[in-house]
Design a protein around this nucleic acid. Structure first.
Length: 277
DNA sequence: TCCCAGGCAAGGC
DNA sequence: GCCTTGCATGGG
């Protein structure tokens, strides 16, 4: 068994799990490194501290079931890697970040977080989301939960402006109220990827890129390739040229199929760490 | 300082 | 449809 429950949480023994890479590959925003050098992360109302070793990881948490699902531990990433290694640039990126896994985040948190991410930098995104949780989230001994949809839908635009959302404030207000007053969230789970994307893009502040991030990180649809400024750099450096910006995502999905989302994260992490450190 | 950041909506054609 | 522009804010 790769997963063993312990008195403090659980231990995962196996390949393809590196908590630094999982946190830093751009899919989540609520994490920090504590005094012991351990990555600590919040998701929804759950908290975990992870001790990383070369052959295993100890996940210290009061909600092990949540994080066993969250870390996508039932998926065998070596199979995905085996297929992606056929592409030389992927082989290189996987060599750099083979411990990445696609996490399964709660839908509302994913939608709000990635609306905030638009035309923003990662430090500032993290700051805004932390303030959002501090002001509206339920307090626990570990920190603050992500606010409930009900609480979010009750805020007016000035609240989101005051925590630094800028012009995204009105998008968040409108989208939270829509999510709260309809059953879109439940319906999204049942839709195929293309239909779900169209539905997501009806939400204010959600375009193609944000929708694809929600599909990947919130609905665990791996047949999408969120294409942002970093991925455009990757495309221009390593792939066949000639596609317009709005054609790149479809082209990359045509190459990587149901492994697209995982490929995207390997390449994103690779590109950011090559050029941004 | 000035440029840019995991884009999106709205308006013009 | 496709292309351009404005947008709040703060990190580097």
């Amino acid at each position: 068994m790769k997963i063993r429950l312990t008195e403090k949480g659980f231990t995962y023994t196996g390949e393809n799990f590196n908590i630094q890479q999982i946190c830093e590959c751009g899919q989540m925003f609520r994490f920090f490194v504590n005094g012991k050098g351990n990555y600590c992360l919040f998701s929804s109302s759950c908290f975990a501290e992870v001790e990383q070793f070369s052959d295993r990881a100890n996940v210290i948490t009061s909600t092990p079931d949540y994080f066993i699902n969250y870390f996508d531990l039932q998926t065998d990433y070596s199979e995905i890697i085996g297929r992606l290694n056929a592409f030389p640039i992927l082989q290189q990126a996987i060599g750099f970040g083979k411990g990445i896994r696609i996490v399964k985040q709660e839908l509302t948190e994913t939608i709000v977080s990635f609306i905030i991410s638009a035309c923003n930098n990662i430090k500032r995104i993290q700051g805004i989301i932390n303030r959002l949780c501090e002001r509206l989230g339920e307090g626990t001994d570990a920190g603050y939960a992500f606010p409930s949809l009900k609480t979010l839908a009750r805020q007016d635009e000035s609240f989101f402006t005051n925590i630094g959302c800028g012009y995204r404030a009105r998008y968040i207000v409108e989208t939270c109220r829509t999510l709260h007053s309809t059953d879109i969230l439940a319906k999204l789970q049942q839709m195929d990827t293309v239909t779900a994307r169209k539905e997501l893009m009806k939400l204010k502040g959600v375009g193609k890129k944000v929708a694809d991030c929600v599909l990947l990180f919130g609905l665990n649809r791996k047949d999408v390739f969120p294409t942002d400024t970093w991925i455009k750099k990757v495309y221009r450096s390593y792939f066949q040229q000639g596609h317009k910006d709005n054609e790149i995502a479809d082209y990359l999905v045509s190459l990587f199929g149901h492994d697209s989302g995982v490929a995207q994260q390997y390449l994103f992490y690779f590109q950011r760490n090559l050029t941004n450190v």
